[in-house]
Write a protein that binds this DNA or RNA. Structure first.
Lengths: 127, 127
DNA sequence: TCAATTACTTACTTTGAAGTAACTAATACT
DNA sequence: AGTATTAGTTACTTCAAAGTAAGTAATTGA
């Protein structure tokens, strides 16, 4: 017996919302979007240096996925050595408010969460 | 040479924000929080039925993690068969606005994203 | 001639999240 | 005696995301 106002959530699994959020939820996308959101336009190696711990492969994969989704645009300058610049598209920029609300929440509440985790893990050790 | 206003993002990797967002980004947490946010209080099997495609194990794991983080509270009624009720804590409820903004964005833009993906994948096949 | 530069690609391995299926405790009901 | 019920646990497998390390193209400058 499921309440009517909850039935729509059955559809949320394997649905387009899940589909979109999966990509937002990967390891590097939120970070890259945040950086481009503040930094404007950046080259591949600039992004690489700003993040510091990302591998070239994962930066490539992340940028390609974001480009395929229409969140990031890629501009190639026909030079040698190559110059490629990345920028948020309007669609990518439209994601910034929702994302920064989430990041703000995380920053404001991380101490409460850490405290809760410690309390929770402490339980077991006392049994 | 990294612009000064971007340097803080270097810290974002392996930091508490990442730590918190990782859990929000797992497969079932957003769904469970959304359901509890609308459904109020629900029993284990009610959540299981509402979601439909989640396994008992993953529902257990997800709820335990959310409980450890202090986002969900767990109330046990000493009965047989057991009765366990789950509710959002105030901390869990405080996450709802940020989450629903993200979900709304996903719903509003999924068609644009799907279109972009198709256009992108179409490129390769024409080479 | 040779190293440096930039934005990658490729091949391989590792890791952990998630899935599957069976099992459990404790009691009420038939 | 046997079945149903609820909220799990346990052992095992699968799979894809992520990491590692090396190689590549094309040109400039020493």
């Amino acid at each position: 017996m499921i309440k009517d106002n909850l039935k729509k959530y059955v559809l949320l699994d394997d649905c387009p919302v899940r589909n979109v959020l999966d990509r937002v939820g990967d390891k590097w996308s939120i970070l890259v979007i945040s950086i481009l959101g503040e930094g404007g336009t950046l080259r591949f190696n600039e992004l690489n240096a700003v993040i510091g711990t990302i591998s070239q492969k994962m930066l490539t994969v992340t940028l390609k996925t974001l480009e395929a989704d229409g969140l990031v645009s890629r501009k190639i300058y026909p030079q040698v050595p190559p110059r490629v610049e990345y920028t948020l598209t309007p669609l990518g920029e439209s994601l910034l408010p929702a994302m920064s609300l989430l990041v703000d929440w995380a920053m404001q509440n991380m101490s409460a969460i850490k405290a809760s985790r410690e309390q929770y893990s402490g339980r077991k050790e006392l049994v």
